[in-house]
Amino acid sequence: MSTERAFRFGRAQHLVGVAGLPDAATPAAPVGVIVLNAGMVHRVGPFRLHVELTRRLNADGYPTLRFDLSSLGDSSAADEAGSQAQQVKADVADAMSLLASHAGCSRFVLLGLCSGAQNAHGVALDEPRVAGAVFLDGYAYRTLGFRLRHYLPRLWSGSRWQRFISRSLQARASQGDDVFAVRFPPREQVQRELATMLDRGLRLHFIYSGGVTRYFNHPRQFRECFGRLADRPQISARLFAGSDHTYALQVDRQRLLDDIATWLRDNFPISGGSNP
């Protein structure tokens, strides 16, 4: 059993979130999980993904918090100076303090989709309380392998050309209008930052969907992007090629939830609990 509690919290009492707190009788989890906004969608997540995810993890014994960053969803601005990145770090620090005070956890896993993955990356870089992160459609870069896999099959397939043209036309029609559009920093920078995180002992899991085939199209591409870094045991990557970017179908969400729950259990097991 677990309970959910709604909170207004933060340094300016400006943030709104819902904490999922496993029953007191459940063995203490080694980490709490904090879920960040996906684009502009409020904390319930696209198609309620964050609600389903946090409740699944609560059932497995992990405390969770899904909340709205400053000015998103139901949260207000903190009315303070500073860059957006600094504000995100301060907001997540507030979220960790809240979950720590109600669930007793001192280390955290961050989870985010799209801009949420970017925010999780930025915070994980130098926040000592972060023990791991799950990046949904996070950073990746086109490689030679990507281009060969992307363009070669189209040369001989009429239906692929047709689909390619249809997608390109639609994409052009809605250019500048992409609700989940994000801008990536240079690959070398991201590679360096990931190495720093791994050196600090963080565990990182990347999950890519078929919604980002414009920059990621094969599990092997992760190594093509990040080189030997990808061979380190604390980092892993998955591709759900048939899914869309926001997991609109229940069967895709279920597969995603299973993968995240398994990764969490393998990397942050609850000792003496129901988790094997």
Partner: peptide
């Protein structure tokens, strides 16, 4: 086609409304 690389089966999409 903007959402899925290939059309999904009716079974995958059954008993749902827009997500």
């Amino acid at each position: 086609p903007m959402r899925f690389p290939a059309p999904r089966s009716r079974e995958d999409a059954a008993d749902q409304w827009l997500g």
